[in-house]
């Protein structure tokens, strides 16, 4: 199933990252490398540090030790231009976090216009294309409150894509959705991955991970227990801890 496309140079390199909230360690010596065009799923029990890792990658959360490089930019550099980094990294959250006072189209258009200072006409054109891509052409003028969870999440994906990011992060984006709307969001992400977007997903969707991921990482207790291509990961996990987890969820 994997290797639908050519993988490029490493885009996200995480090396020996440690992170603690107070005295409580959430990430212990985490390393991973994601190459351009790759789709990686990170799975693991709640509280294993998956979401924190994503937030470290776009500098929403500072790291304690180690280093993170995204598209050649050192994230843990104190002189980091955070805004420049975040223009390259899109993130979609579990709770969508759309701006409730703006329509779907405005939500998608805001950042390119005000952050990238792009021409309004061109931005509107592209925003409409992006909404069409996630199947929401008919919802331009709807406010987030008028949209279903799945629709809101697809607007959130379009909103991130409008910044032309080099990497997309997905933080349990389907966890708050019911099975039907879940599917429409997963389809949108699958299409995106098929087009060659570099995607890192924190997810509990095992079926999706098996189908779409190039590699699957399993984390527990703040460490990466193992990683492998999905066929191998789900078919013949090496670690006892992974087997125990998969037995529970599959």
């Amino acid at each position: 199933m994997a290797a639908k496309h050519q993988l490029g140079e490493p885009v996200v390199v995480v090396e020996g990252v440690e992170k603690a909230f107070g005295a409580f360690p959430v990430l212990k010596d985490v390393s991973l490398t994601i190459r351009r065009g790759e789709t990686v799923c990170i799975i693991g029990p709640s509280g294993s540090g998956k979401s924190t890792l994503l937030r470290c990658i776009n500098a929403l959360v500072p790291i304690g030790k180690g280093s993170i490089t995204v598209a050649g930019r050192q994230v843990n550099d104190p002189a980091l231009d955070k805004l420049a980094l975040r223009r390259d990294v899109g993130i979609v959250f579990q709770q969508y976090n759309l701006f409730p006072h703006k329509t779907a189209l405005q939500n998608v258009m805001m950042a390119p216009i005000h952050v990238l200072k792009q021409d309004r006409g061109e931005v509107e054109e592209r925003a409409k294309q992006l909404l069409a891509k996630v199947g929401l052409s008919h919802k331009h003028d709807a406010y987030p409150g008028e949209l279903s969870g799945g629709q809101q999440q697809r607007v959130a994906i379009a909103r991130s894509l409008a910044m032309n990011p080099k990497v997309m992060l997905f933080d349990e984006v389907t966890a708050a959705l019911d099975p039907e709307t879940k599917k429409e969001v997963l389809v949108a992400i699958r299409d995106l991955a098929a087009e060659g977007m570099t995607c890192i997903l924190v997810t509990h969707e095992m079926g999706f991970a098996r189908e779409v991921a190039d590699r699957v990482y399993f984390t527990d207790g703040g460490v990466i227990v193992e990683h492998a291509p999905p066929a191998e990961f789900f078919g013949a996990p090496r670690e006892a801890r992974t087997r125990a987890f998969l037995d529970q969820v599959l």
Partner: peptide
Amino acid sequence: ESAESLAF
């Protein structure tokens, strides 16, 4: 969080 991550 979402505004920050969109580089506002």
